[in-house]
Amino acid sequence: MTGPQSYIFKTVARFLFFLVNVFALYLLLRGHNFPGGGFIAGLATAISLILLSLAIGLEELHRVMRFDPVRLAAAGLTLAVVTGAAPMLFDRPFLEHFDMHFSNVPFIGGFHAGTPLVFDVGVYLVVVGVACKIIFALGKSTQRLRALVAEEEARYSSRVEQPIEEEVRTEPEPAQNPTIPDAT
């Protein structure tokens, strides 16, 4: 399955992908003192990726992305933990944050920067990774593709394990949408 075959949708989705991500970046950067932040920015980016997957199909998107969302989430978590743990080196409590104000920076004027931003980037990565993984795995299993690509399977599944989608795929049933429950 490769999503709807509409030329308009495909073009718009590709364009929107960048637009949504710019907005996500905006949310991420203004997040500390205003509505926004890593979590919402991460969701926005995840939505942009889902939109793209509708346009070009999940398998194609995997080829384009070239990274494993779980590793992205793990990297984000590591970044957040390291940011939180850094003050411990100076005998300050875990998660203490520092910021400073820069004024008279050429071209920008004054701006505010601090370690919460780094922490937020970590949160952002975790959310993008986890949300993408959830949606892609669910999307793939309902489309009767394997939920994990071969590389991920080598990493996260045991050698004695059989993917559960496998069993369904070999069945001679026609490929109807199987998730509609009975109304009882």
Binding site: A74, L77, T78, A154, R155, Y156
Partner: peptide, 8 residues
């Protein structure tokens, strides 16, 4: 985290 990155 380390075991997650370590994989197999």
């Amino acid at each position: 985290l380390v075991t997650l990155f370590w994989g197999r």
